[in-house]
């Protein structure tokens, strides 16, 4: 039933994983080390997009406020780091917990609405967070917070870009595996079922609101982790991480790669970020090219790039 369990899907995902695994030495050979930080960025955005996919692709909740979770995660790291680089074992879990808490509070309100209202209310909450942080002088206002270094983890030197890359890859792989299990467990079935028809499940005795809220919190927590990683990657926390256009960008990654597929959002993140980087080398008006490309994908690969490349239809 799941897209990922078909053979071609497995081959595709396995191939991509191996490629990512040997990417750092390959880039060394090609003398293109600067691409490593871009790949790392794509991994982190893949994580954020996967978390959005949990609620958007599987749960049918179109949230336009995902940047808020990423931003809360990033600001948690940034604020804690003002007294020098701290332990990632403290900052990262705290980033996840705070993002989940924000998801719990806003989700409890916004999940009572549907469709367009849900989009607007998630956007409104995210904008509140944006203006909160940009107007707070102690958080650097519109300047953001520069970090003096990356977080410390026992046994790992995160200032080594390769170590950081493999850490991101490991975290992404682990979370994708957990998401895969979650989607195929009873919880995920109820989530997918409530996307199709919530009342049908309710009259059969299933408490769909709790399932949807929990999924929303989990997505918020994963996005918070992505934010913490993103702050570490650039050693800088910027209010632009919170801006609503960032939420849109994450959503585009999900749609581009394939909603409701496990690997799609990661693929979308890679394609979007690399395309952006590549096109920017030729013209500063790269959006004029990227836009039509996106339209073509939406028109001709309706399930996204992942089903197209892995050779099967979208999971229904």
């Amino acid at each position: 039933m799941a897209a990922e369990t078909t053979r071609s899907g497995l081959v595709f995902c396995g191939g991509c994983f191996l490629l990512l695994l040997v990417l750092p030495p390959l880039l060394d050979l090609a003398g293109q080390q600067y691409l490593l930080s871009l790949a790392c960025r794509a991994l982190i955005y893949g994580l954020a997009a996967s978390s959005l996919n949990l609620i958007l692709g599987y749960g049918g909740m179109v949230s336009l406020g995902h940047a808020a979770f990423v931003g809360i995660g990033a600001y948690t790291v940034g604020i804690l780091a003002r007294s020098g680089p701290g332990s990632g074992l403290v900052a990262w879990p705290l980033a996840v917990v705070l993002a989940m808490l924000f998801a719990l509070l806003t989700g409890a309100v916004s999940l009572r609405t549907r469709g367009m209202h849900f989009i607007m209310i998630t956007l409104a909450f995210a904008q509140m967070v944006y203006f909160f942080f940009t107007s707070l002088e102690t958080c650097g206002g519109t300047d953001g917070i520069p970090l003096s270094g990356r977080n410390l983890l026992p046994g790992l030197d995160l200032n080594d870009d390769r170590v950081f890359y493999y850490l991101c890859l490991g975290l992404l792989t682990l979370l994708l595996f957990l998401l895969h299990r979650l989607i195929h467990a009873r919880f995920g079935r109820v989530l997918v079922g409530s996307r199709e028809n919530e009342q049908r499940l309710q009259v059969l005795g299933l408490a769909t609101f709790g399932h949807r809220l929990l999924a929303y919190c989990l997505a918020g927590g994963i996005a918070g982790l992505a934010g913490a990683l993103l702050a570490n990657l650039g050693e800088y926390v910027s209010p632009s991480m919170l801006h609503w256009t960032r939420s849109g960008e994450i959503m585009v990654m999900v749609l581009l790669g394939g909603t409701g597929t496990l690997a799609g959002p990661v693929l979308g993140a890679f394609v979007l970020l690399f395309l952006e980087d590549y096109l920017a080398m030729y013209t500063e008006h790269w959006m004029a090219i990227l836009g039509p490309v996106l339209i073509l994908v939406v028109l001709f690969a309706r399930g996204g790039l992942y089903p197209l490349l892995a050779g099967h239809g979208r999971q229904r």
């Binding site: 009342q199 499940l201 309710q202 009259v203 059969l204 005795g205 299933l206 408490a207 769909t208 609101f209």
Partner: peptide, 13 residues
Amino acid sequence: LPPYRIARLGIGL
């Protein structure tokens, strides 16, 4: 009560 609670009390639709 919400629908799922009613279902759990033994009313099927």
